[in-house]
Write a protein that binds this DNA or RNA. Structure first.
Lengths: 111, 111
DNA sequence: CGGCATCCGCATCGATACTG
DNA sequence: CAGTATCGATGCGGATGCCG
């Protein structure tokens, strides 16, 4: 989410789902709504800061819904909106492409 | 192209096509092979440095083919490999999603 | 439990100038 | 025409510590 104008739809979509974590979050929430802590545990390696930051951006985009339960201890659940689910659907072919060629990609020399 | 291991295919694919320019380059080359200068002109705003850098990475991935014609003046043509075309195909739904919702995305407040 | 604030290293990207 | 070289700004993302 850096630009305000895009040269094409693909450009816009990559901007929305790009970055290090958004795709993973989207995927994690695809199955079911998750609490903050569950989300954190299900995405290995993410820091609280990045998780909350990405969630906020996705909430602003209307991709994610944030439901607060006023309890002690606090409970907050995140879920995909229909908009978020439509994006997830659009990402499916890309995910399959990745699955198919992941080995190839990982074998690329990077030094 | 930052990571060497991925938690899922979508993660890998976003890593490959992520960043500011790769999707645009992929799209520009989808129609026909282009020379360096043509490519630069067709992607507004890109610097020579970024263009060559991204092209090199995509060449390393096997997404792009680089054909050098030994002439004066020099001529180099870039085209998509079959691998690159398969990625482009997988990106189509995402591009359509972006087209459909681009206005929504651009309307998001970002300050 | 579910955050927010702050500091900071490092990669990314842009601008400019130069070369074969 | 098709790059290469260098410098500098920016900002992503990690680590740590504190709060309701």
């Amino acid at each position: 989410m850096k630009k305000r104008t895009y040269s094409c739809g693909l450009d816009a979509a990559v901007d929305v789902v790009g970055g290090k974590w958004k795709a993973l979050i989207l995927w994690a929430l695809h199955h079911e709504p998750l609490r903050f802590g569950e989300l954190k545990r299900s995405i290995s390696g993410i820091s609280e800061k990045m998780l909350i930051q990405q969630l906020r951006e996705m909430e602003t985009c209307g991709l994610v819904h944030r439901e607060v339960y006023h309890q002690v201890p606090p409970k907050v659940e995140y879920s995909l909106t229909e908009f978020g689910q439509s994006l997830n659907t659009a990402l499916l072919p890309l995910g399959e492409w990745g699955d198919k060629h992941m080995a190839t990609i990982e074998a690329i020399p990077r030094d």
